[in-house]
Design a protein around this nucleic acid. Structure first.
Length: 462
DNA sequence: ATAGGGTTAG
């Protein structure tokens, strides 16, 4: 049986073989429809259970469509004992790994559970790769899992394979460029693709991705130009622009745009309703410019006027807002009143503020709270040791400092140098290759300002 | 008589 199936793959006739089976099994069609409905109504767990039940009852009615829906269900259903891994095994047993839709969907599943290496394995094992959707899924898997360098590398490889670009792949590629701050490369990809197909320039999602790239790279002027030229705009367009201003310290512009968005967009004559992501940008703008009262007002408005539930990020922005303006007590009170459990990021914001303002008492308490959640973060020891130092408590300081020494890990950062992307590693382990600061100072700009030392550079030609 | 990939945040 396996031999026959393998033979069928190599001939690429599994699809036809499949529909041949379907012709005789209208029952499959009916139950696949049920699976699809569970998916559409947002009940992936029911789809999974139904799939398993059917497989037990009559395996012959399980076809490639059923399997595909089951994979989709397990991508949507987090943490299930019966998930995409089991279905993947089934895919191999049934010989469905030549069905391109299934392979693509599996790449997406492994990406959604953070297992890029496995996603790549599925990609590599797919026999027929002249398919843009498969490549898009894999490249997207890399960007989703914070490996944009690999994403770009694979994109280049795809182009070398002479697969024609479409709007989706360009959107994903620009997202990777945004992540790396590689404006030049992004612009090149974008202009190259619209030269070949005019309709790409009209794609709203693609334009949003381009806008996002400018925004992430600190090119607010280019972003604004693109924003103004856009005939169609949606929440994402506005949100990206609002974010861009907030990130670049242009809080006034950010808040003005937010106001404009809520009232009316002249070019479209419609009101665009902000979503929870928009509010993260707005709150960030407030916190970056010390607008405590305005921030509080927006936070309230988000809940009362827009019926949006604040998430971790929103609470984080509020804590940041209080901390930056020195309202440590308000921040602490706010954290204690939060309806969700404060995470370490939120506590660390407060710890940082304690460090800045030399508040030993609160700092120690906050550190105790952080330790309940995580004891392995070097920065916490550094922060507390700085608090002690600012108060001249030298014994306490050196005790903290000792704990730091053993735990220091190298940091990483990326930078675009023409078409070369370099990885910088800072840390105690790489002293042999000194980077000449003068050579790259022009392109460093603000991108790597957070780093304290560059001990090593690894160049990667893209 | 049903299939796979996309932007903002985290």
């Amino acid at each position: 049986m396996r031999f026959i199936l393998r033979h069928l793959h190599s001939l690429g006739v599994i699809n036809k073989f499949d529909s041949f089976l379907l012709h005789f099994h209208t029952k499959s069609l009916k139950s696949n429809h049920t699976l699809k409905q569970y998916l559409e109504s947002g009940e992936p767990i029911k789809a999974l259970l139904d799939f398993r039940h059917r497989f037990r009852q009559s395996p012959s009615f399980v076809d490639s469509f059923s399997v595909l829906f089951a994979i989709k269900a397990s991508s949507a259903q987090k943490a299930s004992s019966f998930d995409g891994r089991q279905i993947h095994a089934l895919v191999r047993k049934l010989g469905f790994n030549a069905v391109i839709q299934i392979q693509t969907s599996l790449v997406g599943f492994y990406s959604s559970v953070g297992d890029v290496d496995y996603a790549r394995q599925v990609f590599d094992e797919t026999p027929e790769k002249q398919n843009i959707v498969l490549w898009t899924a894999m490249i997207s898997a890399y960007t989703e899992n914070e490996n944009s360098v690999e994403a770009i590398e694979l994109f280049k490889r795809m182009e070398a394979e002479k697969i024609e670009l479409d709007e989706v792949i360009v959107t994903v590629a620009l997202s990777a460029c945004a992540d790396l701050g590689a404006v030049q490369m992004g612009e090149e990809i974008y202009s190259r693709s619209i030269k070949r197909k005019r309709r790409l320039a009209m794609d709203l999602t693609l334009r949003n991705s381009l806008l996002n790239m400018y925004v992430k790279s600190g090119e607010t002027e280019k972003a604004r130009k693109l924003f103004d030229e856009s005939m169609r705009k949606d929440v994402t367009t506005y949100t990206s622009m609002i974010f861009g201003y907030a990130l670049n310290g242009q809080a006034q512009e950010s808040l003005e745009l937010f106001k404009k968005m809520k009232t009316i967009d002249q070019s479209q004559d419609t009101v665009i309703t902000p979503n929870d992501v928009t509010f993260i940008g707005v709150l960030m703008a407030c916190s970056h410019s010390g607008l405590v009262e305005e921030g509080k007002r927006h936070f309230k408005s988000m809940i009362m006027d827009y019926n949006l539930k604040p998430r971790e990020a929103h609470f984080g922005c509020m804590v940041d807002l209080f901390c930056r303006s020195g309202h440590l007590k308000d921040a602490h009170e706010f954290i204690n009143q939060m309806p969700i459990k404060p995470n370490t990021v939120i506590w660390r914001t407060l710890l940082g503020a304690c460090s800045l303002h030399g508040n030993v008492e609160l700092g120690e308490e906050v550190q105790r709270r952080i330790f309940e959640l995580d004891r392995d973060h070097v920065g916490d020891y550094v922060a507390l040791s700085n608090i002690y130092a600012s108060k001249g408590m030298w014994d306490e300081k050196s005790k903290m400092r000792d704990r730091v020494r053993k735990r220091r890990m190298p940091g990483k950062s990326w930078i675009e140098l023409g078409s070369i992307i370099n990885e910088f590693v800072s840390g105690p382990d790489n002293n042999d290759e000194q980077l000449m600061m003068g050579e790259i100072s022009e392109v460093l700009r603000c991108l790597v300002s957070c780093m304290t030392s560059f001990d090593c550079v690894i160049g990667k030609k893209m």
